[in-house]
Simulated assay, not measured.
Amino acid sequence: MKIKKIGQILFCFYKNNEQLYSLTKRTIGLGMLLSRLLNERYKSKPIEFLNLMFLDEESYENDQRKIKGYNAIAGPAMSYYGVLDIEMYLQLAEEDKNALIWKMACEYIIKTAENHSNKDLVDACKYAYETGVSLNYCTDLQGISSELILFGKVIKSEIVFRFEDEKVTAFLILRNEDKVVFDKPLHKTDADVGAFFYVFKEIVSVGNIILIKGPKNASIFPMTVTISAEDLMG
């Protein structure tokens, strides 16, 4: 199993010195995407937590303890205090919000890495930035997968997590010869419920019924999904 060198990335927003946690929840998927892409290249000392702060000017004026541009890598944690016009940000279309936060977050990480002589992190972040742009900031997260036999056909199955607003939904995806033939939601929860991304343990077929397994103490399991031969035609 590949060891992750970059852990959780959180974007924290403040307006008039008041934390806007709803904006953090809306960007959890973006933070997870950035962490995944950084892990594809970063090989140096682990950084378990990256807290990137987006504060408006009033937040700095009202709290002298907060310093614009302050950055640090202390033990397993990294932090950066940046400036964001929250009112302007809220007026943007969703894709423009993603592009702005992505650009600023990568700039923050690169500045911090340069200040602490971490060239590996600089290079990994430049790669992550370009890759995220090419993916159009798609935050879909692939979970478990397996091959099933349904109606005599070999069908590839997978769980995919998709983010929307402050929520995340787990979808069951079925592919017949690499063509998506089934794409349906299974369960939705708040985006900041970290355990949700690990509760789906196994996808199996019993006859022509799909059974999705998870922890015995989780009330949503086991999940059963009935499939028809027509479903597999796409």
Rank of each mutant, 00 (worst) to 15 (best):
E177S: 15
A218T: 01
L150H: 05
S117I: 02
K25L: 13
L172F: 03
N217R: 11
R41S: 10
F163R: 01
K153A: 14
C125I: 02
K103Y: 10
L50D: 03
K2E: 14
F49E: 11
N51S: 12
I212G: 02
L186F: 10
S35N: 05
E158M: 13
C138G: 08
E130W: 04
Y127K: 07
I159C: 07
F151M: 06
G7A: 07
A74F: 15
R26P: 00
N62Q: 15
S146F: 04
V83N: 04
T224I: 09
K45D: 14
F182R: 03
E158S: 15
D190N: 13
S145V: 02
E40F: 09
V168G: 01
K213P: 02
Y70L: 14
M32C: 00
I67D: 05
S79P: 00
K179M: 09
L174V: 11
E130A: 12
K201L: 07
L150Y: 09
I28P: 00
K15R: 15
S205D: 14
N176H: 15
P46W: 09
D63A: 05
E87Y: 06
G75D: 15
F151G: 09
K45I: 12
E87C: 03
T169Q: 08
K68S: 10
S35P: 02
E58S: 10
Q91D: 11
R162H: 06
V206E: 15
P215S: 07
L121K: 09
A93H: 09
Y80P: 07
V122W: 11
H116F: 15
G194D: 13
Y60C: 04
S79W: 07
I109Y: 11
